[in-house]
């Protein structure tokens, strides 16, 4: 069976079966990372360009390792997205990169929509590593992989996503993905951090964290940024941490077996305390480890790999 997608732009584009294909294949790719020699020749001769217009050490490193473990050549280009406000446009830059004939461009960009546009305009594969507040599909896939790895299934799983839902591409991608695979999602935030129209998302919405915590199998905490204070989304970090932070008191309320996730980077002491982030319920480091395997799968599939792996 051939993989039908040239690009990975949004979870919204993937079917339930395709998501499961990615998760299944990632288990074999994860095995490679456990070997003594963590490298296979699968993508030898392919070129992957990492275009990061927004700071992200973690995601860039994850993609870079994923490409290298598959023997692809990688070039990373980091710049500030604001350099496109005048003069050269982002499309000029993209066509310049394209002239170097890469097989895949991994793009992170501070504004929504560019990966979709590149996927349409360029012949190479485009993998969206996060565009504005739109989507972050590879994060959602590694999150779903981590949940399935831990619980054995995603069907019927109760997932609470807590924090700045309004401005989070991670929340959007996870909501779309988790719904497709049959998990049940509750988003938790003050009303000021809920996106308009959230009632149409088909998720449960709560402003009260405590009752949700007692029901959830997975508590996914989102990073909350200080600039939201200036945008009058909440008064200060003290009040935010009190009502929406994951602390010892709330960890003690969690169901037996329930786990804590965070896409990183964490604001320790704001949305998550040390007890929660580093305690035995946290699978935050598993998320990081699984990120490489899932991205190997996505590079492999996008660059023409066969679904059966041969």
């Amino acid at each position: 069976m051939n993989w039908p997608h040239k690009d990975i732009v949004a979870i919204a584009d993937l079917s339930r079966e395709e998501i499961y294909t990615i998760l299944d294949m990632s288990t074999s790719f994860k095995e490679i990372s456990k070997r003594d020699i963590k490298k296979v020749p699968t993508l030898r001769g392919k070129t992957v360009v990492l275009l990061f217009y927004e700071a992200s050490t973690r995601t860039r490193l994850s993609f870079e390792l994923a490409a290298k473990r598959l023997s692809a050549d990688t070039t990373a280009l980091s710049a500030s997205g604001s350099s496109f406000q005048k003069g050269e446009t982002i499309m000029d830059a993209a066509f310049n990169v394209m002239a170097m004939a890469p097989d895949c461009i991994v793009i992170r960009y501070p504004y929504a929509g560019l990966p979709r546009k590149l996927a349409r305009e360029l012949p190479c594969s485009i993998i969206n590593a996060g565009d504005g507040t739109h989507e972050h599909p590879t994060q959602a896939l590694l999150d779903m992989y981590s949940m399935r790895e831990h619980f054995g299934t995603l069907e019927g799983l109760q997932v609470a996503i807590v924090g700045d839902i309004a401005h989070s591409r991670v929340a959007r991608s996870n909501v779309y993905g988790l719904q497709k695979v049959g998990a049940h999602v509750t988003v938790v935030a003050p009303k000021t951090l809920l996106p308009p129209g959230v009632r149409t998302w088909g998720v449960d919405v709560s402003c009260d964290f405590d009752p949700v915590i007692q029901e959830a199998d997975v508590i996914m905490m989102l990073r909350v940024q200080r600039e939201r204070i200036d945008e009058q989304c909440f008064p200060d970090e003290r009040e935010y941490a009190y009502f929406y932070g994951l602390n010892k008191r709330r960890v003690d309320m969690m169901k037996p077996g329930a786990v804590i996730m965070h896409p990183g980077p964490m604001n320790r002491g704001v949305e998550i305390t040390h007890d929660a982030a580093d305690g035995n319920r946290s699978i935050i480091l598993n998320q990081v480890e699984n990120g490489v395997a899932v991205r190997m799968t996505l590079l492999y599939l996008s660059l023409g790999g066969n679904v059966n792996g041969d």
């Binding site: 204070i229 200036d230 009058q232 909440f234 008064p235 200060d236 003290r238 009040e239 009190y242 009502f243």
Partner: peptide
């Protein structure tokens, strides 16, 4: 708002 200044929200929850 804090100080009734109309800028930052006060700690309504607390």
């Amino acid at each position: 708002t804090k100080g009734l200044k109309g800028k930052e929200l006060s700690e309504m929850g607390l």
